[in-house]
Design a protein around this nucleic acid. Structure first.
Lengths: 340, 340
DNA sequence: GCTTGGCACTCTGTCCGTGCGAGTGCCAGA
DNA sequence: TCTGGCACTCGCACGGACAGAGTGCCAAGC
């Protein structure tokens, strides 16, 4: 079946040429640029079969062929080798990320780096709160009747809430409360901490019980329904590059989806830290992303993903390169967050 | 000088028509749509003068006239009345912003709201750290040799840094340190707090002196060189609306500038809370913004601006409407931040 | 049976010439 | 000072011609 093999080789060549030139690719050009060992006429026959099978299509008669979503899918699954990053790129990642001072800084730098490496739109999700643990709970008295609760997670995220209290509170009570909360919750996963809140009210020393009761609702809310997960987006300027060619109508729906965040966050919720997920065109099951591909992976040192990151671009993208870049950045971010 | 007056009336009509229709406007259309009381021929004479003075220009012979930057400037300064927001809009602002739980939430909502009201790109600056005061300084022991410093400002911003310590530290010392820092810095402006750091090292109790010395460098850095000011951007999808018409080449440089942030932050540094600043086209003195206008104002309750917010769009924008929207949102954000 | 060269066919993108309409500038008259 | 009229200038849309790219098919060769 040298037959089938060559046909796949033709598909690979089509994808590679189309990705790099952005022109529908014809049989003659293929024969010239690749050593397929056969004439254009033979390639034409193969192309006819590939088209019938749905891997490629022609925009119009007398134009070259263009891969379909299905064609890219086959390419990604079977035809593309992992493209390792160059030493220089690897070093650039380290240099770029090493100066980060806190979580926000790490994520901002990552998103820029990723956008630069791939020349696509990059997205990085904040570490999911539901998978994080409490590092510290801080209580600050803002005024006589207002208390601020600050949650710091093991990944460095900070969430804050202000609680109105009907009773006056003194500094000593605040200190006690702080101790109470931290001995109860430090190191505990957020979900589990949430479950423990009712217990806390019951077991608190009598003189603190009122205070604990007052803050418990807000505390619970902070722990179990923490502000929606956030997303850092970068490199949107890359959308304005070949837009007319890459995105049929306009980039507007895509920009809207990126700002809406919720769509992308749903995608990011599906990643795990070991395998890179590639969603091509219609596979995205969301209209705004139908013309786009998403390459994403989870980051996190221990195997469980703390969050996801990835790139969004036209289906006509350099999959091997983007997969490699996304994986490399994710790995490095994972290391960084494990350290801090 | 009824002369000059009518001529200005003509300019105003041109700006209004051009903003709403996006077509170069001719003398005939002008005479029809506005009650200027004179014939198209007269208007043509006025237009010739306006063109000579540099207020309007024609894209090519036999096209209508289009306002120049100078024309918009005159319109903004002299010809446009403040357009008060409708009650419904005012109520929408309140409804939209009232549910915010923390600073990030306030700013994110504001930027969305502003983008929606103006149909332009909206930007909101985080409260400038240099103008904020310390609300609370928190010290958390992360491990035996690592301490995390957390700065909470009176505007609700949170900055965090990890300090490596060579000496082991116990919980009691941390608590003492926390007390020391807060009694020294609570309520003090960041800049001034930074100046007090050396004193602190000298006056600290002997048993804490080593610890204080260890953290003082990081503390100083956190107080006086706090992470660059941040910007929240929203509504970039609005750039993809009439782009071909509004922005000559492409929106790419503009998107890049918005992501770079530094250019926009510099603009925001110039605002104050009382007057709305309008920069039109070339006035922006930055290439990427040369084809755009920026409407910005500071927010903050007390008169001193905590930060800036505004919109960026094509020079062909609804100035009165955008000015009103920007001012209204800034006022409301100021109230919200003063409360919390 | 697979491959190849040749050939006719189809379609797009481009160039050019034409006609139309919008809008102007100028001038003479009110 | 305003107004109506008129000639003039362009840009743009339309349509036909043309070149070029690429295909599909067929008959011949290995």
């Amino acid at each position: 079946m040298a037959h089938d093999e060559r046909r796949l080789e033709v598909l690979r060549a089509i994808v590679q040429d189309y990705v790099s030139t952005n022109d529908p690719v014809g049989s003659k050009a293929l024969a010239e640029r690749h050593d397929l060992g056969v004439s254009p006429a033979t390639i034409r026959n193969d192309m006819a079969v590939l088209e019938e099978q749905g891997y490629i299509t022609q925009p119009h008669t007398s134009a070259g062929r263009v891969p379909t979503d299905k064609g890219y899918r086959l390419f990604v699954d079977k035809l593309s080798a992992v493209k390792p990053l160059s030493v220089a790129e690897r070093r650039a990642i380290e240099r770029f990320l090493d100066g980060a001072v806190d979580l926000h800084d790490v994520l901002t730098r990552s998103v820029r780096l990723l956008a630069q490496l791939t020349r696509q739109v990059a997205v990085v999700q904040y570490p999911t709160l539901s998978r994080s643990a409490v590092r510290h709970l801080e209580v600050v008295q803002v005024s006589a009747t207002r208390i601020m609760l600050i949650l710091i997670t093991d990944t460095g995220r900070v969430e804050q809430r202000v609680v109105e209290s009907t009773v006056d509170t003194d500094a000593e009570a605040v200190a006690e409360l702080r101790g109470l909360l931290n001995s109860a919750f430090s190191g505990v996963r957020l979900v589990e901490a949430g479950e423990k809140v009712p217990d806390l009210v019951d077991t608190a020393p009598v003189h603190l019980r009122g205070l604990v009761a007052t803050i418990s609702a807000t505390l619970l809310e902070t722990l179990v329904e923490p502000g929606e997960d956030r997303l850092v987006v970068g490199g949107t300027a890359n959308l304005a590059r070949g837009s007319a060619l890459d995105f049929p109508g306009t980039v507007r729906p895509l920009l809207e989806a990126l700002e809406e965040q919720v769509v992308v966050l749903r995608l990011m919720g599906q990643v795990d830290a070991s395998t890179v997920l590639v969603r091509i065109g219609e596979e995205n099951a969301h209209e705004a992303l139908a013309g786009a591909s998403v390459v994403s992976v989870g980051y996190g040192s221990t195997g469980r993903a703390l969050g996801g990151l990835g790139v969004v671009g036209p289906t006509r993208m350099d999959y091997p390169g983007n997969i490699a870049a996304v994986r490399a950045v994710a790995r490095y971010v994972g290391h960084l967050l494990a350290e801090s």
